[in-house]
């Protein structure tokens, strides 16, 4: 047995055991610690698979950021309210394990009978070494072939940031939105005014000679300013 296989079994065994710990631990903090352990071992397996960059990304993003955030939230949430694992729902647990076993059997069958293989790619270890290593190879591929997806991902992260902000401080975002809406909408004519068919007496009192009869004895209300007839500003209007 080659040394790589031994190392793999070691890493994979710890990873799986730790993953099981995530599910089995009573205390969510223990779950999180188990998850970290599992992730670190998976990262080591990535290194075995010549994916150094992903291994580091896994550690920085998953363990360094995501799980830390989970711990953060765990500590902010009231500890006493955390529900127990064995919450008196044995049926659900049994069904869950059964489904898991069934899926495991199916996937194992699929893996063992697998014969479909795509055409091998051009990034052989030599080709990767020729451009300077895994990280350079990924960079080349990422910023040429996958230019658009990476931009979309950037957008997704931005949206997630704004979404998180909205979940945390809705009032802040709504304030900003209202300002933006007021500043950036372009409104066309929005008719709101005085009905000329109304009797003159019911029209607003003449202010500074603003109400008068035009040719044809038609009531003509000179409303040069919004203030005269509308209590509320028109949609999107800024009063001076």
């Amino acid at each position: 047995m080659a040394i790589e296989v031994l190392i793999f079994y070691l890493l994979a065994g710890v990873a799986i055991a730790a993953a099981a710990g995530v599910v089995l631990a009573r205390n969510p903090v223990h779950s999180a610690v188990s998850l970290v352990l599992s992730f670190v071992n998976v990262a080591a397996i990535y290194v075995m698979l010549r994916a150094e960059f992903l291994a580091v990304a896994q550690i920085i993003v998953y363990t360094g950021a995501i799980i830390v955030l989970v711990l953060f939230v765990l500590m902010l949430v009231q500890q006493q309210d955390l529900p127990e694992f064995h919450g008196g729902r044995p049926l659900r647990r049994a069904v869950g394990f059964l489904l898991g076993l069934a899926l495991l059997a199916e996937v194992a069958a699929a893996i063992l009978t697998r014969s479909l293989r795509g055409a091998p790619g051009s990034w052989t270890p030599e080709a990767v070494a020729a451009v300077g290593g895994n990280i350079q190879a990924i960079g080349r591929e990422l910023y040429s072939v996958y230019m658009l997806p990476i931009q979309a991902t950037a957008l997704l992260l931005l949206a997630a940031t704004i979404g998180a902000l909205f979940l945390a401080r809705p009032e802040l975002i709504e304030e900003r939105l209202a300002i933006a809406r007021r500043l950036f909408t372009i409104s066309l004519a929005h008719p709101r005014g005085v009905d000329p068919l109304q009797p003159v007496a019911e029209l607003p009192a003449p202010q500074d000679g603003q109400l008068k009869l035009a040719g044809g004895d038609r009531a003509l209300v000179m409303a040069r300013s919004a203030e005269e007839f509308t209590e509320q500003p028109a949609w999107g209007e800024i009063r001076r």
Partner: peptide, 16 residues
């Protein structure tokens, strides 16, 4: 011409 005739659109007669 529509936009400009109805420039004072708060006035019903102008909008009409």
């Amino acid at each position: 011409s529509y936009l400009l005739i109805g420039f004072w659109f708060r006035r019903r007669s102008a909008a009409d």
